[in-house]
Design a protein around this nucleic acid. Structure first.
Length: 576
DNA sequence: TGTATCGGCGCG
DNA sequence: AAAGCGCGCCGATACA
């Protein structure tokens, strides 16, 4: 690429064993095309990154970026065509007849093998037909052109550009976090398991304390052979001793008074720990002091991330003690207090709710405003408003919030009504809810016909309300996910600007790009964990805080809304 | 023997 | 405590 005219974008595609790179100028015109052998690809990327710092355009971030990281090459920016396509083709901000909605091949979801970060690019012998999106450069160029046109012609190009930049940054971060891994102390995990479950038995027997709990349950049931892991059998055994529950769920059991309840709840708790995060999980998912889950950006319709394998987003808090910084390193653990209601206040322009949100505790602010009497009531009412509660204490309290915060409540009530009517709702930056299914629409129209039965009408009404609760929550959950992406993207940029520590201080299990620098190690909706050299931990914590403020401004401009964080610097991620 | 579904529960 | 949203994973069960 000519130094006099550095490319704004470089679009990458594969051709046989080679990579084809097309440079585009700021207007999107192709100015340069070259073919690069896979063996020299990482080095070439590193050179372009340092000389012209383009935005890399590729079909699917994990396929390209995992291998680059393995070779010690980090990039600052990308445009993930697959994720961007998913946003644009569904967005209500995009023109109905935009060409991007009809792109062939870009709806496929590629199968990403959890153990193979970059199977295609650097191990061409093993490259299979697994890629879900077109991988040649001409397909990528054509799709990129359709996407830029769709954005430019949309009702709000600025928001969509932000969303796609944030989504693509998230794609980079997800691959980076897997490469870096979450520092995990297997010995500490084993200690927790042994303390709670008792010693591990050879020969597949239950650990001591789990077996003891089981024995106490069977004694209380008066049945030495009672099956505790089969829901129907357990239910019948409970009925036989007079515990007349309809399910064996924890909350329903907890309402009962019977000697079997306490040991049964204990058994369920321990059994869950063993099956979900016991020694088998440890053996399978923690290698060389790192837990490396697969993060799936955009994996949830709202834009939240999902995960695949290892249950990364469901780590029980009791295991947080096993998250341990390397020697000489620290963990910066940060989470946003009440992210979703703050986002709701900002996107609805509700100054009253934003006022209640000023400071650390939004719920206390609601109490101070006089809308409800206690913090607990404030929490229940607000969650009920965002989730669509209609019954119980929550349903009873929501009307009081409607009076106190009409704009915020009006926004979620409108979203619910639109959803019930079969319409679409969008997040702040333009991610749009999926349309109702054909089955849903058929049920609605059938219910309006003269010969509709009562059952038809009841079912249609229930499905309409279900969808209303979904769209009600979609706008809030999805916008919160956008805030979190903006937070992480800005944080990533700040961390990358810090000088690396000397090689002697490296974290040798974090991969070449991260072993000498503070880096993101974990993300969970409204919380991040940064693994940082001890001498950089305080500046990393400041970066986390500053990035949160930036994210608020990026999304909501000057609207006066706080996003206060709980930030801790420690050797372990255990929540105090 | 393998696949789909369900109840249950972990996380936000 | 659940309630009202969104997930992934487990073991058991039903079914091909």
């Amino acid at each position: 690429m000519g130094a006099a005219d550095p490319p704004a974008w470089i679009v990458l595609g594969r051709s046989g064993d080679d990579v084809v790179a097309a440079g585009l100028d700021a207007t999107g015109r192709e100015t340069d095309r070259r073919r690069i052998a896979a063996s020299g690809f990482a080095e070439w990327i590193a050179g372009e990154e340092s000389s012209s710092s383009p935005r890399w355009v590729w079909n699917d971030t994990p396929q390209w970026y995992g291998g680059l990281l393995d070779h010690g090459v980090r990039v600052a920016r990308c445009h993930d065509l697959r994720l961007s396509h998913a946003i644009l083709r569904g967005s209500a901000l995009v023109q109905p007849d935009a060409a991007v909605r009809g792109s062939v091949g870009w709806d496929a979801v590629p199968y990403v093998e959890p153990d193979a970060l970059a199977p295609v690019l650097f191990d061409l012998e093993d490259s299979g037909p697994s890629a879900g999106t077109p991988s040649d450069v001409d397909s990528a160029l054509a799709e990129f052109a359709r996407q830029r046109l769709a954005i430019a012609d949309s009702s709000d190009p600025g928001r969509l550009r932000l969303l796609i930049a944030a989504e693509s940054a998230g794609a980079l971060i997800a691959v980076e976090m897997r490469a870096a891994g979450l520092p995990w102390d297997a010995a500490e995990h084993d200690r927790i398991l042994t303390e709670m479950l008792g010693g591990r038995r050879s020969g597949g027997g239950q650990p001591e304390l789990l077996a003891a709990a089981a024995a106490r349950v069977r004694a209380a049931l008066g049945d030495p052979a009672a099956s505790l892991d089969s829901q129907p059998k357990l239910l019948r055994a409970l009925h036989r001793v007079g515990v007349l529950v309809e399910s064996t769920s924890r909350w329903e059991l907890a309402e009962q008074r019977h000697p079997v309840i306490e040991p049964l709840l204990e058994y369920k708790k321990l059994s869950r720990l063993l099956s979900a995060n016991g020694w088998s999980w440890l053996d399978e998912w923690v290698q060389d002091g790192r837990f490396r889950p697969v993060f799936v950006p955009g994996g949830v319709v709202t834009g939240r991330w999902a995960s695949s394998g290892g249950g990364a987003l469901q780590l029980p808090r009791q295991l947080r003690e096993a998250v341990r910084a390397d020697p000489g390193w620290r963990l910066v653990v940060a989470d946003v207090a009440q992210l979703e209601p703050r986002v709701l206040a900002a996107m609805s322009g509700d100054h009253a709710l934003a006022g209640a949100a000023r400071g650390r505790d939004l719920y206390a602010g609601i109490v101070d405003s006089g809308a409800v009497a206690t913090r607990q009531e404030a929490k229940i009412a607000l969650l009920g408003a965002m989730y669509g509660a209609t019954t119980g204490e929550s349903g009873r309290l929501v009307p009081r919030l409607r009076r106190a915060y009409p704009r915020a409540m009006g926004l979620v009530d409108d979203a619910a009504r639109i959803g019930e009517d079969g319409g679409l709702v969008s997040t702040w930056l333009g991610r749009t809810s999926p349309p109702p299914s054909a089955e849903w629409s058929v049920a609605q129209s059938r219910a309006t016909e003269a010969e509709a039965s009562g059952a038809d009408e009841t079912r249609a009404r229930r499905w309409a309300r279900d969808r209303g609760r979904f769209t009600r929550n979609f706008v809030v959950q999805g916008t919160a996910a956008e805030w979190a992406l903006a937070w992480m993207a800005d944080l990533r940029a700040r961390l990358s600007a810090v000088e690396p520590v000397p090689a002697a201080r490296a974290a040798h299990r974090s991969g070449p790009v991260f072993e000498r620098r503070a880096h993101l190690a974990f993300f969970l909706h409204d919380e991040v964990i940064v693994h940082a050299p001890a001498e950089h931990a305080e500046s990393a914590a400041q970066a986390v805080t500053d990035a949160a403020a930036t994210a608020g401004r990026i999304l909501f401009g000057d609207f006066p809304i706080d996003f206060p964080l709980d930030v801790r610097v420690a050797g372990t991620a255990l929540k105090d």
